[in-house]
Nucleic acid binder design. Structure first.
Lengths: 224, 224
DNA sequence: TGAATAGTGTCTTTCAGACAATATGCC
DNA sequence: GGCATATTGTCTGAAAGACACTATTCA
């Protein structure tokens, strides 16, 4: 037992952060993957992430990795879970703290950061074989996202500043993989008071234009 | 950016696990604290925990630390959150993965493990000043426990094998800090099907003896 | 029979879910 | 007017919450 513990005396694991960046695009829930160009799992797809630096917090590390690999900054990030199976990385002991983040695909266009790494969104139902335990991590994150839809405004990250109720309902249906009754959905969403109406839809569409709504809070309300 | 990352090239943080061991005793929700006999925070109270070894998973580390410091083994352990502020430990960078566990105070008598460390349960509302960021960790854990009471059978860990509905209601009231209606509580708890009746209470008590119940599942049903 | 706790049912309100007709804007 | 989508309300069933009296055991 560690009576006098000297921190220098123990072997230390490496610690990484990995980020699940969700978006909804073309009727599917997708996550961003990057193609690895190092061993191990060279040429495999993996979650964006990397080593935590000694002078940054975990949240900062997740933000930095996300912005380095994708160019997006200051998204809402939520810590998911920490995976630490001793064999999860074949090189050495690596413990990874995972996060999730959400972007609206209409507001954000992927910017190449000069980093040669290839990055692409994949539907969560059609993921390729992933490096490390990233498949497990992805499943965990999707489950968490589904749960949180029910009792938080987390979905706001997936939508642009203003959107129609039909847009919002579609996002719910895609993530939950169910179809929802339009009247009941509207009743419930509006009764939460999380969203408010603004002006009307413009773009010359050949039918009745829908009212645009936006979220009252621009930030995710923390609940857990 | 880490194009060729060599895991040996980065400084590595230390990683610990810390465990919130809950119990309900004398009408209060309590957690186990141990008195530190090393720097930093020598003689302060702290959560039981310690360094993760290179060959064990995080769950295993939490189990090991709990059993080393308290003598209890194989409790249900749930990972809570990972705290990694760079300044949370004055010695060096230490990232801690936190867990919670629950014991019934009637079934478990604290066994000293020969370890000289002093260990004691403290009411969560009357915690002394704790080492590191352990006060924050405790608050987080209490909140999580409260949330989970509502939609899981996690409370089973706090009760002995059989118990009366009044016992169970008291545990809920203590943790939630509210009083509950007896009839509504019973209706709701019984309708979940999580507990079942057994025989009757024996011990010569000077009034009508209550029915004893037990949990149908002996394990916590995972939901998150 | 008195003290102490166990056990039980009804009514009201709220929320979720099923369900279809009318409104609006553009061509 | 025809097309395409937007918008809206009622009914029903389930669950949550308020509320008070009777039952049982022992001393």
């Amino acid at each position: 037992m560690k009576d006098k513990y000297d921190v220098t005396k123990y072997d230390r694991p490496s610690v990484t952060v990995d980020v699940l960046l969700f978006t909804v695009e073309a009727g599917e829930l997708k996550i961003l993957l990057v193609k690895r160009n190092e061993t191990p799992f060279e040429d495999s797809w993996a979650l964006p992430g990397g080593f935590v630096r000694m002078d940054e917090s975990l949240d900062e590390a997740a933000n930095r990795e996300l912005s380095e690999e994708t160019g997006v900054k200051n998204l809402y990030l939520e810590q998911l879970y920490t995976f630490g199976n001793p064999k999860r990385d074949p090189r050495t002991r690596v413990i990874t703290v995972t996060y999730m983040a959400l972007v609206s695909n209409t507001e954000w266009k992927f910017k190449s950061t000069g980093d040669a790494k290839e990055a692409k969104f994949f539907a969560v139902d059609k993921l390729p074989k992933l490096a490390f335990d990233h498949t497990e991590i992805s499943k965990y994150g999707v489950q968490r996202l589904r749960n949180k839809l029910g009792y938080t405004n987390i979905v706001l990250g997936l939508l642009p500043g203003s959107f129609t109720l039909t847009d919002l309902q579609k996002v719910y249906e895609i993530i939950l993989k169910t179809s929802l009754d339009k009247r009941n959905f509207r009743k419930k969403i509006l009764s939460t008071g999380l969203i408010v109406a603004s002006g009307k839809k413009l773009e010359g569409i050949a039918h009745r234009p829908a009212m645009l709504y936006c979220f009252k809070n621009k930030k995710v309300v923390i609940t857990d």
